[in-house]
Computed example of a mutant assay.
Amino acid sequence: MSGRRNGSAPADLFLRIVAGDLPATVVHSDDLVVAFEDADPQAPVHVLVVPRERHETVADLAAEAPATLARLVQVAQRVADERCGGHYRLVFNSGEDVGQSVPHVHGHVLGGRAFTWPPG
């Protein structure tokens, strides 16, 4: 376990959702990841996919638990297939300057409308 990961951090919003301590509309749950609707959706489809264990960034997750990252992407695809015809944007923010407000890696599955480029 790296110094950037702490599976027992009680302040971690996503760990509290994963544990069932905070309400969320869960759309998928397995032994590695949980997916739930974003409380402040930015698109018609906006689902967060989070690993059950805390890893701060997507790079940390890739280095420390690559199978979990692969599962996260698989679940993102499943959500997109079910909710927006398989067309989606998968976004990971890494760091406060780019919008990461919870220091627990999470993929934003966004879809259900056309997107422009560049984002933001």
Rank of each mutant, 00 (worst) to 15 (best):
L69S: 03
R78H: 14
L72N: 04
F115H: 05
V50P: 01
A63L: 03
V33E: 15
D21G: 07
R113L: 14
P118I: 07
H106Q: 08
L72R: 05
V18R: 04
F92I: 05
P51D: 03
P103H: 13
P103G: 09
V102H: 01
Q77N: 13
H28G: 05
V49M: 09
F36A: 02
H87I: 09
G3L: 15
P41D: 03
V91R: 12
G95I: 15
A35L: 11
L72Q: 14
P119Q: 10
D38W: 06
L110P: 00
G3H: 12
V105K: 06
E56T: 03
R113S: 14
R83L: 15
P118D: 09
A9G: 06
R5Y: 01
G120H: 10
E96V: 10
V102C: 00
L13T: 08
L69R: 04
V75K: 06
V91Q: 08
R113I: 03
R5Q: 10
G120D: 12
T116W: 08
N93H: 15
E82Q: 11
H108F: 09
R52G: 08
I17E: 05
E82F: 01
L32V: 01
I17R: 04
P23R: 00
V27E: 15
E56V: 04
A24D: 08
T57V: 04
V50C: 03
S94Q: 15
G86W: 13
V102R: 00
C84P: 09
S2E: 15
R54C: 11
P44Y: 11
G112H: 10
E37S: 08
S94C: 15
D40T: 03
L48H: 06
P119C: 02
Q42F: 09
H87N: 13
G7P: 12
L15A: 14
V109E: 07
P119E: 12
R54L: 10
D81E: 13
H55W: 03
G112R: 11
V102Y: 00
